[in-house]
Computed example of a mutant assay.
Amino acid sequence: MEQGAAGDPSSEAASHGAADVAKPTDGTAATADALATADTATPDGTAAAADASPTDGTDDAVDPDAPVDPVDQDGTRAAGSSADAASDRQPDFEPLTDTYERLRHSTDSAELSGYARAPLPDRSNQAAFSRATALLEAVAGNAHTPVEDRVFLATTMPFPNILVKLSADPEAEVRRAVAANEDDKNWLVGRLTKDRDGEVRDTALRNPRSSWKMRLEGAQDPEVGPPTLDALADLGVRTEPGAPAVLSSMVRRAVALNPGCPRETLERLARDGSDQVARAARARLR
């Protein structure tokens, strides 16, 4: 039986038929898998990967739920994109020196008035507070700041840098407001007792921050007005009763000797508790 099977012509023909399929005439090996691979080969002869991207160009590896910045049709980033939103959140900041110079030379009265009237930051925020007071100096020194705003600053501000600027203001009304400010340094009041405007000088002399030297010089000045002489005649008596007796009596005596002293003031000084003051006043009344 084994010999008959080996020599069976039909079996031999079958094996030759199989060989014809397995081995083509050009000698290349072409298995069924190779043929299947050949169908998916790229034009340059390389085999395409089994997990190649679909023909529509989308990438299966991209998370479809990931946020994507919107893009306009022309390829530019939309205004609402995350990058633009981040930049919008960053406030514009102008350096102090730049803002100072801009305000110092500004002709925009409305802007200058806004700075003059804006409430100051709380002192606990030292950086913001220092910046605001520094900028007020530029506003105070700008002639385009409305006069009423400069008077407001001269009346309400306690800061020497601002008051010094305003003490040189071309408007006597502004300088007078500085002269009346009791937060002035005494040297600044002293400067204003020599002001070219009589009302400014008188106001400075009536300021409690004025020194005794300034008061004495004012009491001796024949150009000082009667209201100011009358105010000086009260020093150490009705005003500042705790003032040094010697200094205050020297000022009152100088008032009594001043040729511009009004009669009613002389009559009051003639009853002064200091003999020297009273004698000087009575001598003037004769």
Score class of each variant (00 low, 15 high):
Glu101Ile: 05
Glu94Asp: 12
Pro119Ile: 09
Gly242Asp: 12
Asp230His: 08
Val139Arg: 02
Asn181Cys: 02
Val174Leu: 05
Ala243His: 01
Asp84Arg: 15
Thr76Val: 08
Ala66Gly: 06
Ala66His: 12
Ala34Trp: 13
Trp212Tyr: 14
Ser211Gln: 07
Pro24Leu: 09
Lys194Pro: 01
Leu235Met: 09
Ala19Phe: 14
His105Met: 06
Glu199Tyr: 12
Pro158His: 10
Thr31Met: 06
Asp221Cys: 06
Pro262Thr: 03
Glu171Met: 09
Ala245Pro: 10
Asp56Trp: 10
Ser167Ala: 13
Ser87Cys: 02
Leu112His: 01
Asp60Trp: 12
Gly7Tyr: 13
Asp44Glu: 12
Arg286Val: 02
His105Gln: 10
Arg268Pro: 00
Glu111Ser: 10
Thr28Tyr: 00
Thr239Phe: 03
Thr193Asp: 01
Trp212Leu: 02
Asp184Ser: 12
Ser130Tyr: 06
Glu12Tyr: 08
Ala6Asn: 14
Met1Val: 01
Lys185His: 13
Val178Leu: 06
Glu182Phe: 00
Arg238Thr: 15
Asp197Glu: 11
Arg102Lys: 15
Ala47Asn: 07
Ala48Met: 05
Thr99Ala: 13
Asp149Cys: 03
Pro146Thr: 03
Glu264Asn: 14
Ala278Gly: 09
Leu153Met: 08
Asn181Trp: 01
Ser10Val: 08
Ala283Val: 10
